[in-house]
Simulated scan of single mutants.
Amino acid sequence: MDKQVQTINTGPNYKRIYHDFIESKCPDKREYVKKYLSKDTMSLSDVLKINNIIFLDGLSESQKFKSYDKQAIFEMLDYQKEHQLNNSQLAKHFKLSRNTVTKWKRMFLV
């Protein structure tokens, strides 16, 4: 009898997402992100740095690939408090929509 192993979904697997994306869409940037993808766990700053490396051209199309888990959202909202930023400033800093920041605050801080 085979035992089934249950895995707990702890959020997006950024290492796998970025690895697959780089292999299929932009293999020329593999060397630039290798040090981030070799880490055991990726922090929010690692994810944002990889985003900047991959989507440096600033196309609005790249926005559709962004995904954040609760931990990343809370880190951004904590960053806002620490640096006393309003929603517009936070959105500009992390390249988000102001509406997204407002939605997160409604969802998690109410």
Rank of each mutant, 00 (worst) to 15 (best):
F94D: 05
L96H: 06
Q80Y: 06
I53V: 11
I54T: 05
K92V: 11
E61T: 15
V101C: 13
F108M: 06
I54Q: 03
I54H: 03
N51L: 05
S97W: 13
E75T: 08
L56S: 10
T102D: 15
F74Q: 12
E82A: 06
R98W: 10
Q89Y: 10
F55D: 01
I53N: 02
L96M: 13
S88N: 14
K70W: 00
Q63I: 12
I53Q: 03
S62Y: 03
K81L: 03
I53F: 00
K103G: 13
N87M: 11
H83K: 11
R98I: 08
N51I: 10
M76V: 01
V101L: 10
F108Y: 15
I53M: 02
K92M: 13
M107A: 11
L77V: 00
S97K: 11
L96R: 05
N86Y: 05
R98L: 07
T102L: 14
G58A: 08
I73H: 01
K103Q: 14
N86W: 02
E75K: 08
Q63S: 09
I54Y: 00
T100M: 13
N86C: 08
L77C: 02
K103L: 12
I73V: 12
L85W: 14
K105N: 09
S88T: 14
I53S: 02
S97L: 12
H93R: 11
S62M: 04
Q63E: 02
H83M: 05
Y68P: 01
R98F: 10
L56E: 09
Q63W: 04
F94W: 09
S60H: 06
R98N: 15
S62P: 11
I54L: 07
K95R: 11
L85P: 13
D78Q: 09
Q71H: 03
N86D: 14
R98P: 09
F65D: 01
R98Y: 13
A91G: 07
L77S: 01
Y79I: 01
L77R: 03
F108H: 14
A91L: 04
A91W: 04
L77Q: 02
I54C: 02
N99W: 08
S62T: 14
L77F: 03
K70N: 07
F55A: 06
V101F: 10
M76D: 01
L85I: 04
Y68H: 06
F55V: 12
S97F: 12
F65R: 07
K64F: 03
M107S: 10
L90G: 05
K105P: 09
E82C: 05
D78G: 00
F55R: 05
D69C: 08
F55L: 05
Q80I: 00
Y79H: 14
N51R: 13
E61N: 09
D78I: 00
Q84W: 12
R106M: 10
K95L: 15
L96Q: 08
